[in-house]
Computed example of a mutant assay.
Amino acid sequence: MSRILRTEPNPILSKAVEYHGFVFTQGIVARNLDADMKAQTADVLSQLDELLERHGTDNTRILQAQIWLKNIDDRAILNELWTAWLPEGQAPARACVQAVLADPRMAVEIMLVTTK
């Protein structure tokens, strides 16, 4: 039986779950929720870099991304940073929707599925 590795688990969720060469992240939000959309997105992408590195992978190995925006009109800002962050030709399957997030100050939340 393959081992399931859980990163920073708590009673509700784990920051990431690794299984059989796949890494599933939690939804990542900015640390500073008072920042604007651009700063929140940059922080989320930075946190994802750190989390993927911790699991021995990176943004060239993303299979799927799920993105929730407080305001879908912010999609252009997200896409500007997203495309700069992704290596050329490495875009994953992706969904991006407007949603009511857990805290009204949250502008963006991103969850990834990657492989090692």
Rank of each mutant, 00 (worst) to 15 (best):
S2M: 12
A102K: 10
R75K: 11
A39V: 10
W82Q: 01
A65W: 09
T41Q: 02
E18R: 14
R54T: 15
P9N: 04
I110G: 08
E50I: 12
Q64D: 10
L52F: 08
R94S: 08
L5E: 14
V17Y: 06
T114R: 06
V29Y: 05
T115Q: 15
F22P: 05
P9F: 03
Q66I: 12
A84Q: 02
T83G: 01
T41V: 07
T7V: 05
A39E: 15
D36W: 00
E109P: 01
A84Y: 00
H55Y: 10
M106F: 04
V23E: 03
K15F: 04
M111D: 06
V113F: 10
W68T: 09
M106I: 15
L112N: 07
V23M: 04
A91M: 03
R31S: 14
A95D: 11
A39K: 13
M106E: 15
R6G: 05
L81K: 05
M106V: 12
V17M: 11
E53L: 12
Q64L: 15
A84L: 00
W85Y: 05
W68I: 09
S2P: 13
M111I: 14
I110S: 08
R6M: 14
I28Q: 05
A16S: 14
I62K: 05
M111Q: 13
E80I: 00
W68N: 12
D43G: 04
T25V: 11
I4V: 15
L63R: 15
A93F: 09
A76I: 05
L112R: 05
T7R: 08
